[in-house]
Computed example of a mutant assay.
Amino acid sequence: MAAFGSVFMPEMAISWFDGSDWSETQVVPSDSLQLHPGAHVLHYSSTCFEGLKAFRHEDGSIRIFRMDRNIARFAQSSHLLALPAIDEAATEKMIRDIVARFADEVPEPPGSMYIRPTHIGTEPAIGKAAVPSLTSCQYVLLSPVGDYFAGGDKALRLLVDDQGMRCPPHMGMVKSGGNYAGALRPIMKARAEYQADQVLFCPGGDVQETGAANFLLIDGDEIITKALDESFLHGVTRDSILTLARDKGMKVSERQLTVEELLERAAKPGCEAALSGTAAVLAPVGTLIYRGQEFSIGDGGIGATTVMLRQALNNIQWGKAEDTHGWLTSL
């Protein structure tokens, strides 16, 4: 089976900003993007993106999950990167129209259609290292994806890094390619040296997030996760999981979590940890590696609460449970 996000629909929606206005949206081949080699994005990383999904329900209808929240974050990332402002209504129409165009290709659950809106600075000016791009382009790619856990649901291994950070603190809440690029080398090093799946960045002992997902500690009926600030990504899946946890009577503590407290709680029977994100929804964490030592979280396996919360969210996405929060958008 093809790797997640490596298969694309043959066409994408695209629009260009010329410095004053956005062009009408066009549908073009998805392997067709012409940029000047001096384009701002290629030199100064003026790029942001989103990741959301469309799901097929049993009645054949297609629903997009929390599109409003993703578009709002897309607009915020564009603003924080000093890219031209997007037209949120136009972006929503781009997403709706291109998904509708390929509605027949949306897989049955547990598969989905992954949606990747992207915004890049296009001005050809290599002298603008400290000046934003006045022109830009946004496009929407579609990628049909299967079951994230098709290869088997396994508890992940995280290297706890209390020295480095994923990205500069003021860039954390921007969903930008540069943040992922900056985290890549530490992740590769952790895989090679410790067989870790990801790095949990905890600068100064403050537990933040991994290279590509938010971190949640589940201790009995309490979920502990870092309170929102600009240093890390405000995950839409994170927000959804915390909302469902509250619905089920769980205590949600959004506060500082130190490495010391994390290791202390992790050793308790029944403790769980998970990573939240669009691709996996909620992936279990079984082992923490810190200063050369391995620490099991609970019994080191897949926690029942993690599975329960993931299933609760999937059931809403797949139309098997009532959408009481109005998260699903029909085409």
Rank of each mutant, 00 (worst) to 15 (best):
A2C: 11
G5S: 13
S6L: 10
V7Y: 00
P10S: 12
I14P: 00
D18R: 05
D21K: 08
V27A: 13
V27Y: 14
L33W: 08
L33K: 10
H43K: 01
S45M: 03
A54I: 00
R56S: 04
E58V: 05
G60T: 12
S61I: 01
R63G: 03
R69V: 09
I71A: 12
H79K: 15
L81F: 00
P84D: 02
D87T: 05
E88Y: 01
E88I: 08
A89Y: 00
R96W: 03
A100D: 08
F102K: 12
F102P: 12
A103F: 03
A103M: 05
A103T: 10
E105C: 13
E105K: 15
E105S: 14
M113T: 02
R116C: 11
H119N: 11
I120S: 06
I120P: 06
T122M: 01
E123K: 07
V131R: 12
P132Y: 07
S136V: 04
Q138R: 15
L141D: 08
S143H: 08
F149A: 11
G151A: 07
G151S: 09
L156F: 09
L158F: 08
L159S: 01
D162C: 07
C167D: 05
P168D: 08
H170A: 14
K175G: 02
Y180G: 06
A181S: 04
A183M: 05
R191Q: 15
E193G: 10
Y194W: 13
Q198T: 02
Q198S: 07
V199S: 02
L200Q: 04
D206P: 00
A213I: 07
D221K: 13
I224Y: 02
K226V: 12
A227Y: 14
F232C: 11
G235C: 13
T237Q: 04
R238M: 06
L242K: 04
L242M: 13
D247A: 02
G249M: 01
M250G: 07
M250K: 05
K251W: 00
E254A: 08
R255Q: 10
L257W: 06
L257Q: 09
V259R: 11
A267G: 12
A267K: 14
A267R: 14
G270T: 04
G270V: 04
A274E: 00
A280P: 03
A283P: 11
G286S: 03
Y290A: 15
Y290E: 14
S296L: 15
G301E: 13
R310D: 13
R310N: 13
Q311W: 09
Q311K: 15
N314C: 15
I316G: 05
K320G: 07
D323S: 03
D323F: 04
W327P: 04
T329E: 15
L331S: 05
